[in-house]
Amino acid sequence: MAEAKVRVSHIAVPGNLSVLKLKSYLRTAFADAAKAKSEEEVLLVKVLVPRPLGLRAGEKFFDKVLQGMIDKDPRVTRVSVEFVDGEITPQAIDASMARIQKELDEFGHLLDEPSADVGRD
């Protein structure tokens, strides 16, 4: 995997969605984010959710829905959900990207090492 390029995709969930529509929205947005640019890439997905919607949906909802999507694409190495106060703005996405870049700078070398698929049930 040393030749793999890391690509980070953000999914910004609108705050006006109902929990019922959230699953469909996530599936569509995840499919768009995961469109293959290269089979050799490593894909990290960050889902930004307005806090009130995230709390209504609950942790188990996100675990189940996102795990189902992860299982379909072996390029996806990490998916994380971040609750954001207020609407998802370009500034919130930029701040998230800065945090991810800092993590990649510190720990990105771990992506090159073979894993035992920790976290994949």
Rank of each mutant, 00 (worst) to 15 (best):
L110W: 11
M69Q: 06
K64Q: 08
R99A: 14
A116I: 06
D71L: 13
L53I: 07
E87W: 10
K102C: 13
G108D: 02
K64W: 12
A116N: 13
R78T: 12
L110N: 00
P114V: 07
Q67E: 14
A98Y: 15
L66G: 02
G68S: 05
E87K: 02
A92Q: 12
I88H: 00
A57D: 05
D73F: 12
V47F: 08
V84H: 02
Q91R: 13
R56T: 09
V65K: 07
V84T: 00
G108W: 01
E59T: 11
K72Y: 15
Q91A: 14
I100A: 04
G58V: 05
L66E: 11
I88Y: 04
A57W: 06
Q91G: 13
K64R: 10
L110Y: 10
G68H: 08
D71Q: 12
A95S: 14
T77D: 15
L110C: 00
I88Q: 01
A92T: 14
P74D: 04
V47C: 09
L66T: 07
V84K: 02
D94N: 13
A116C: 06
A57V: 07
F61A: 03
A98G: 12
S80Q: 05
A116E: 06
D73P: 03
L53A: 06
S96H: 12
K72C: 11
E106Q: 08
L110P: 01
E106G: 10
P50F: 01
